[in-house]
Design a binder for these strands. Structure first.
Lengths: 231, 231
DNA sequence: ACCTGAACACCGTTCAAGT
DNA sequence: ACCTGAACACCGTTCAAGT
């Protein structure tokens, strides 16, 4: 089982063409926090959490190695900002002020999960990071919908956190196991050798062929059944 | 908002006393995988994920800086083994073959969460790591109990993963927010300035005073209500 | 105000060598 | 078989300077 880290050693050299060239020399634009964060997201998508190095990020921006530090305190901040930038949410108009609270909750939480799975690095980052405006916006919206659906004021925080916990767990698990499918196959094969020790999960092939999306929706339904009183 | 990393600069110097001394020179024992892992857990408990450095670990073992690499492939492996070592589980005898399946599930899952909260670094590590024997043992047991409780074979994997997701989400959230209480307070204070933007979660004080344990049990009950058919 | 390269401190890991 | 220090490659960040 080789270490998963290993540098990708990718070929694309972002070296700017010789400045004398008449070609558009890529990235004349000045640095800015927005450009830095957008490029950080690109880099994270391409190379994962371990692939984000300050020097590499600067390179990709066509900037001198250490220029970033004028715009950003440190690498942690880059993570914080990249994460929140990926979690923006706009409700589709038909769900605004709709009486269908369950549909509204489902839409927002499934979108949340989908957004994070589109940027798998976000799943490992979210739990440790500061809550940015987009994340807070989702929590606010969730609270508003649940309150409107009849959840008592005293149960509201508990309901919000339960759903948060569920979404985080499902998303983090999915993002990581998805990312390491070979590991799962290998693990399931190891299980086969140990079928006396783990007969049940060997029989059901727990580590293979799981319907993550369906599982997610089902569990969410069960949670909502319990959390929100019927009328 | 200072970076959370900062070296702890702790004082306890584990330098072995001069070898000529008559005192028991601490750690005459040879290195062994068990000692390495046990000490890694100590270090992780004391200093967190970022505090585990190979040199420091060797130091603490009274061993030469690079000796570890004979026993262990790399740092990743240390994480894998430390994690699984902390997740052993033995059912109390009264729950073995008991008809009280809900009690058995609750005991195992609450113990799982408690074990991880006792070693908060484990919460951030688990989702990315290989599944060791103790983790697999818990999944096997969970499958066995649920199957005995009447969950259909085709629903078994989904039920197991739902519970896994829920436990992971709740534990990771708790471990991280617990660890950074000041951040939560600061965030809630920031919310107060933005009460037009986030009126609901500002009103309910979402980021403060949450009953994590109660929330965990309630949600678990709701999930089990849905996952396990009544008779 | 904004950007830069040189330099520092630190850390995982390899290697050639010791017993 | 088991342990070791020196050395390498790499990376975040500081600093003194440049424009």
């Amino acid at each position: 089982m080789a270490a998963k880290r290993g540098g990708a050693q990718d070929k694309h050299q972002r070296k700017a063409a010789p400045a004398s060239s008449t070609e558009k020399p890529r990235s004349e634009q000045p640095l800015s926090l927005e450009r830095i964060i957008a490029t950080a997201v690109e880099l994270l998508d391409a190379e994962g959490v371990d692939g984000l190095k300050m020097r590499r990020l600067a390179d990709r921006l066509g900037a001198g190695a250490m220029s970033l530090y004028w715009h950003v305190d440190n690498k942690e901040k880059v993570f914080d900002l990249a994460l929140d930038s990926v979690l923006a949410y706009r409700r589709p108009s038909h769900l605004i002020e709709s009486p269908n609270w369950r549909g509204a909750v489902f839409h927002m939480l499934e979108d949340w999960r989908a957004s994070m799975l589109r940027h798998p690095w976000s799943a490992s980052l979210l739990p440790r990071r500061a809550l940015g405006p987009n994340i807070l916006g989702r929590l606010e919206l969730l609270g508003r919908i649940l309150s409107g659906a009849g959840v008592a004021e005293k149960d509201l925080n508990g309901a919000i956190w339960s759903l948060w916990n569920y979404v985080m767990g499902a998303t983090i698990t999915r993002a990581n196991f998805d990312h390491s499918d070979e590991d799962m196959v290998a693990a399931q094969q190891r299980l086969a050798h140990l079928s006396e020790q783990y007969p049940t999960i060997e029989r059901t092939r727990l580590l293979l062929d799981n319907d993550w999306d369906g599982t997610f929706r089902k569990g969410l339904d069960f949670l909502l059944d319990g959390l929100v009183p019927t009328q």
